[in-house]
Design a protein around this nucleic acid. Structure first.
Length: 399
RNA sequence: GGUGGGAUAGUCAAGUGGCCAACGACGGCAGACUGUAAAUCUGCUCCCUAUGGGUUCAGAGGUUCGACUCCUCUUCCCACCA
């Protein structure tokens, strides 16, 4: 039992620090029914979760299966500083109102994966906001500047003459102090959080918490480009709240290489089964597209439902494999004749008339399925199906 | 506090009086090829109904026929010294 739980917990993990502690906690749970706390922090800097976040959430859900009580920490205080991790510039600081707004959509999305009854939502504003200047100084004395500058992200910024705000130095300390306050047994986060996560252990020791938290790190999920970390600001993400069609399409657009990564970190399939699929693709008994489709179905089903996922698949085939037009196309209308470039801009499928003209000249624009090359074309009364590239569509009714 | 260096398009980064809407790289968009994949190749990449016009090189002034380039002030960043 314990072994099975351990295996499931360590699946996909990049690193576990203090594995013994994890084992002990599990043992206590299975033998005496004792629960334990698992902390994970989330910065409400963006209102929407994406699959990168769900890697952590799924891991938390696994812990919940085996006696873990999740401390879902909203960094309501720390968000006002901005986590410097992995950033090469000081992050923009959020206003209180933005944060509150973000939290709500954040948690509803999270509970698509987490068991709400085993989750406690905590805000670090509650304790960090109470700290006095003296408390801060005491906290800060736990860390030297030299150590801080050892951090890769800071040292890079330092070397490249990118500014580092002093407040950013406080970030790891505050995150670590959260673990002190919450007396967390385990904390999980991305590998890029290692420094911050370990700070929790160090501070728990400094503040005389008997047991230091175990730390479990998950790999960072690459975004759709397969290179950079999935993030909203880079636009390479699949959002939890994405429409089924988008979600399906986005998964299918990832490279074959990246697909295995997504399988490992996002799929519920067993590692054995994934290995089998991989082998099948390698020896040509399985078509990679088929395998990717299954993954897309699985992920889409998780956030929508089976039916929506199947519809998305059918829609996708229709639009892309058979080159037909999608079912739902946004309809626009205008009065009087309209210049084609202007029409494309008005329908939000081109950013500027200049860009529209360029695309037209390059054969990237279709009207009613026919390529157009005349960038001076006027559309007179009637209904038109406008298309830019492969995936931007709009219907326009000219009155 | 002192001294010196810097700020250029989405990002990095050339340009040091007219040849500059500004080299190049990356990113992005479109086309070809495909499995809407990847890789590759080609074109484009400030805005504007455009062989032309407009607004750009941190901000404000100035010198000049002409400024991203020179001068002054301001803001921000960096380095060294204190």
């Amino acid at each position: 039992m314990i072994d099975e739980a351990l295996r499931e917990i360590s699946r996909g993990c990049a690193e576990i620090i203090d594995n013994e502690r994890v084992e002990k906690l599990l043992k206590n749970y299975f033998e005496e029914g004792k629960t334990y706390t698992v902390k994970a922090g989330f910065d409400p800097t963006a209102p929407d979760l994406h699959l990168g976040h769900t890697v952590l959430l799924q891991k938390l859900a696994t812990f919940q299966k085996y006696g873990g009580r999740v401390q879902f920490l909203i960094g309501s205080f720390t968000a006002t500083i901005g986590d410097p991790t992995g950033k090469n510039a000081t992050r923009k600081v959020l206003s209180k109102e933005d944060i509150i707004k973000n939290i709500k959509s954040y948690t509803t999305q999270a509970f698509k994966i987490l068991d709400e009854s085993k989750t406690e939502i905590v805000y670090n504003d509650d304790w960090l906001g109470q700290m006095s200047a003296a408390d801060m100084i005491t906290l800060a004395s736990n860390l030297t500047v030299a150590r801080m500058l050892e951090r890769d992200d800071f040292s890079k910024r330092f070397k490249s003459n990118t500014p580092i705000a002093t407040s950013e130095f406080m970030y790891p300390l505050l995150q670590g102090y959260d673990s002190v306050y919450l007396k967390s047994d385990i904390e999980i986060g991305g590998t890029d959080q290692k420094f911050n996560l370990l700070m929790g252990r160090q501070l728990q020791k400094a503040y005389d918490i008997k047991k230091q938290q175990a730390v479990l790190m998950m790999p960072i999920l690459e975004g759709l480009d397969g290179v950079a970390k999935m993030s909203k600001s880079l636009g390479n993400y699949i959002g939890v709240a994405d429409e089924a069609n988008d979600m399906f399409g986005k998964v299918l657009s990832i490279s074959d290489e990246l697909m295995w990564r997504y399988f490992e970190l996002l799929s519920d399939k067993s590692l054995d089964e994934i290995a089998r699929l991989k082998e099948g693709v390698a020896n040509n008994t399985l078509h990679p597209k088929k395998v990717k489709e299954d993954l897309a179905i699985e992920i889409t089903t998780r956030f929508h439902d089976e039916k929506a996922a199947q519809n998305a698949k059918a829609e996708f085939e229709k639009v892309h494999a058979k080159n037909q037009i999608p079912t739902d196309i946004e309809l626009f209308s205008c009065d009087g004749d309209i210049w084609i470039a202007k029409a494309l801009v008005d329908c939000n499928i081109e950013p500027s008339t200049s860009q529209a003209r360029r695309d037209i000249k390059q054969g990237g624009v279709k009207i009613n399925q026919e390529k157009v090359f005349d960038d001076k074309l006027q559309l007179s009364t009637g209904e038109y199906l406008l298309q830019v590239g492969k995936r931007k569509f709009a219907k326009l009714k000219v009155n």
